[in-house]
C-alpha cells in the first residue's frame, strides 16, 4: 500500500514538533470528550423516566457557583496552554535559520516554477539537499495558490503582488508531495508537484551534471517537457478528455471550435495553442489554459510537437 502523503516519519524537526502539539491537544480534548460524552450518556441513562406518564420528583437546581466557576477557570487555563504551545511551534515554522539557501517559486494556473540561485529552473519538481535549510521565496503570477508539504506539516499561501516564504530542513531523503491548497480554478486539484530530497553527494552530482543537456531523439525530449511542465494535469495521452482535449490522435486531426469553424491541428496550431491558448479553443472546453510564452523556448515547442506526432 502506498503511504499517505503525510506519512513519511520524522522528516524534519518542525514536523516532529507539530506532531507533538497535535498530540498535546488530542490528549486534552480526548479527556474532555470522555468527560462530557460520558456524563451526557450516563445522565441520560441514569435519570431516564422509569414510569411512563409520571414525572419523578426532580430537585429545583438552578445553578452552582463553585461548579460554574471551575468550568470557566480550568478550560481557560488549558486553552491558554494550548495557545502558548501552538504559538511557540508556529514561530519555529515561520522563522528560517540564517543562511538558508533560497529557491524562488512562481506559481500560476496550474503549475509551480522553481528557480535555483544559479539560474537553473524547473517545473513541478524541486530538488533540495538533505540536512541543509532551504527557504522558498514565493509569488504568484495570477491568482492565489497554496504550497502545502503534507509530510513536513507546513503550508503557505502564494499571493500575487507580494512574496511569502516557507522554510524547511529535511532530515530524510525521498520524494515528497507538494499540493495546492488554495482554490485556484478548474485545474486546482491537478496542481501538484514533488520535492525530492537528495543526500549531499547525489545532490552535488545532479547540480553539476547534465541539466538541460540530455541527448536523445526530439520526441523523447518533448515527452519529458510535457511531463515536467504539468501538461498532463489537464491533457491525457490515453484518449480520455479531461480539462483539455486529449493529446492522443490530436495531431493532424480536424478540430472544431465553439463558433463552428474548424482547423487542422497542425504544427502552427500547436504553436499558437501553447503561446496563445485561448485563441482557438476546441469546442466543449473552457478557455482556461495559461500561456507558456516565455516559459517554453522555440526548441522546446518543436520538441513537444515532435512528441505530439508520436501519440496516435
Amino acid at each position: 500500500m502506498i503511504p499517505y502523503p503525510t506519512d513519511h516519519g520524522a522528516v524534519s524537526k518542525v514536523s516532529t514538533q507539530v506532531d507533538s502539539v497535535f498530540l498535546f491537544i488530542a490528549a486534552i480534548t480526548l479527556f474532555f470528550f470522555l468527560l462530557t460524552q460520558g456524563t451526557l450518556i450516563w445522565f441520560a441513562f441514569r435519570y431516564r423516566r422509569r414510569k411512563p406518564g409520571h414525572d419523578e420528583p426532580t430537585p429545583y437546581i438552578t445553578g452552582n457557583r463553585m461548579l460554574e466557576t471551575l468550568w470557566v477557570v480550568i478550560p481557560s487555563i488549558l486553552v491558554i496552554g494550548i495557545f502558548v504551545y501552538g504559538w511557540i511551534v508556529f514561530d519555529n515554522i515561520r522563522t528560517p535559520p540564517p543562511g538558508a539557501a533560497e529557491i524562488n517559486v512562481t506559481a500560476r494556473q496550474w503549475l509551480y516554477e522553481f528557480r535555483y540561485p544559479d539560474g537553473a529552473s524547473s517545473v513541478n519538481e524541486v530538488r533540495v539537499p538533505l540536512g541543509a535549510p532551504v527557504r522558498f521565496v514565493m509569488t504568484s503570477s495570477d491568482v492565489i495558490h497554496g504550497f502545502y508539504l503534507p509530510a513536513f506539516r507546513i503550508k503557505q499561501d502564494i499571493v500575487p503582488g507580494r512574496y511569502t516564504d516557507l522554510w524547511l530542513q529535511p532530515e530524510k531523503t525521498g520524494s515528497f508531495d507538494i499540493f495546492c491548497t488554495q482554490y485556484c480554478g478548474t485545474g486546482h486539484s491537478t496542481m501538484r508537484a514533488k520535492m525530492i530530497v537528495m543526500d549531499e553527494p547525489s545532490f552535488r552530482k545532479w547540480r553539476s551534471g547534465g541539466r538541460g543537456s540530455e541527448t536523445g531523439p526530439m520526441w523523447m525530449k518533448g515527452k519529458a517537457l510535457i511531463e515536467r511542465y504539468g501538461c498532463l494535469g489537464c491533457h491525457s495521452v490515453d484518449g480520455v478528455d479531461r480539462i483539455g482535449p486529449t493529446f492522443k490522435g490530436l495531431f493532424g486531426r480536424k478540430v472544431e471550435m465553439e463558433d463552428g469553424k474548424a482547423f487542422f491541428a497542425d504544427e502552427s496550431y500547436f504553436r499558437e495553442s501553447i503561446l496563445d491558448p485561448t485563441a482557438k479553443v476546441v469546442k466543449g472546453f473552457d478557455p482556461v489554459m495559461p500561456t507558456y510564452k516565455g516559459t517554453l523556448s522555440d526548441e522546446d515547442i518543436a520538441e513537444i510537437i515532435a512528441y505530439m506526432k508520436t501519440i496516435r
Binding site: V18, T29, I82, Y85, W87, I88, F90, K155
Partner: peptide
Amino acid sequence: GLTGPFLGSLGTNVQLHDT
C-alpha cells in the same frame, strides 16, 4: 467543538488549514 482547538492553535493550524 473539541476539534476546534486543533485549528485555533497556530502550530497545528498550518498543517490542517484548507484540508
